[in-house]
């Protein structure tokens, strides 16, 4: 006997809702791509096919400079955040130490803090510490590339740490023990057992860090210097002045860049899942 489902909603209503949600999520992105090829000068109106707006991107030297800054910020901040985040994940999951709980709580905050608050914090911190350094040692510092990197690392350590911790928590701790039983040194056990096992988590964390770094508008806007604006901050200021077909084209480029990162992370998850299944199968076969 089949009972009616507990919700009064018939199957078709659920299915329609699902279709509407997917349409809502994807239609804007797809339409943006389509309109970036429109010959009309008004963005959002169709005027025949053209790719000329993409060609205009190559003439804009300001745009190219901001892209270069964005890429450099993303690479440097991701590298630092990945190393620091992985170290803190290992410390929190595998060791007991004084101040562990405080550290744990401190690492949760950047994830839930609103980015406006984070931006305000970094702005005030840099202006205070710069004037302090100036008055104490006569060192004159100004906001720019370094302040953007420092701020991005400050919020990305937490995200990398969460992703890596999830990976370590799902890992078999006995493998490390086995390594040390076989007289591996602490470093060897880490290098040849732990690191390869947590590598997908580390890579996933790094991808998230790149994405968040390239996504950030608010924090960067507060800590960027005159000559060191990133692409999103520049595009944001352009949009506020008025939309143009060129912005459409830049947006699509940014879209493609972020989709490449998604593909990377989805691929990573699938590889993980299938490797997990394989391991299960081999271990099942051996027993």
């Amino acid at each position: 006997m089949s009972r009616k489902p507990i919700h009064r909603l018939p199957a078709w209503a659920l299915r329609t809702n699902g279709a509407v949600v997917l349409l809502f999520l994807y239609a804007p992105i797809i339409l943006l791509v389509i309109f970036s090829f429109s010959a009309s000068r008004i963005p959002g109106q169709w005027g025949g096919f053209t790719a000329e707006w993409y060609a205009t991107l190559f003439d804009d030297s300001r745009l190219q400079r901001t892209i270069a800054v964005s890429v450099r910020v993303a690479l440097v901040s991701t590298l630092l955040a990945t190393v620091l985040g992985t170290m803190s994940a290992l410390a929190l999951e595998r060791f007991k130490f004084r101040g562990r709980r405080v550290f744990d709580a401190l690492l949760y905050l950047p994830i839930i803090i609103p980015d406006v608050t984070m931006a305000v914090m970094m702005l005030m911190f840099f202006s205070q510490s710069f004037s302090l350094l100036e008055s104490l040692f006569g060192i004159g510092l100004s906001k720019g590339f370094a302040t953007i990197v420092v701020s991005h690392v400050a919020f990305n350590i937490a995200f990398v740490s969460v992703v890596v911790r999830a990976r370590i928590a799902g890992m078999d701790a006995t493998l490390e023990q086995a390594a040390s039983d076989l007289y591996a040194s602490r470093w060897q056990a880490f290098r040849f057992v732990t690191l390869p096992l947590i590598a997908p988590g580390v890579l996933g964390g790094a991808l998230l860090a790149v994405t968040l770094s390239l996504d950030d508008v608010v924090v960067t806007q507060f800590v960027a210097g005159p000559g060191s604006t990133t692409l999103p901050v520049y595009v944001f200021s352009l949009i506020r002045k008025g939309v143009t077909p060129t912005i459409n084209a830049v947006s699509v480029i940014m879209l493609v860049a972020s989709l490449i990162l998604v593909a990377g992370s989805v691929g990573l998850q699938r590889a993980n899942a299938s490797r997990g299944r394989q391991q299960l199968r081999t271990s099942g076969g051996n027993s």
Partner: peptide
């Protein structure tokens, strides 16, 4: 399918609605 927009650039997603 739900995760992909979450990873897609935030500014671009807002801009898309500006055009729509």
């Amino acid at each position: 399918a739900v995760m992909i927009p979450f990873w897609t650039n935030f500014l671009v997603r807002n801009y898309a609605w500006r055009i729509l």
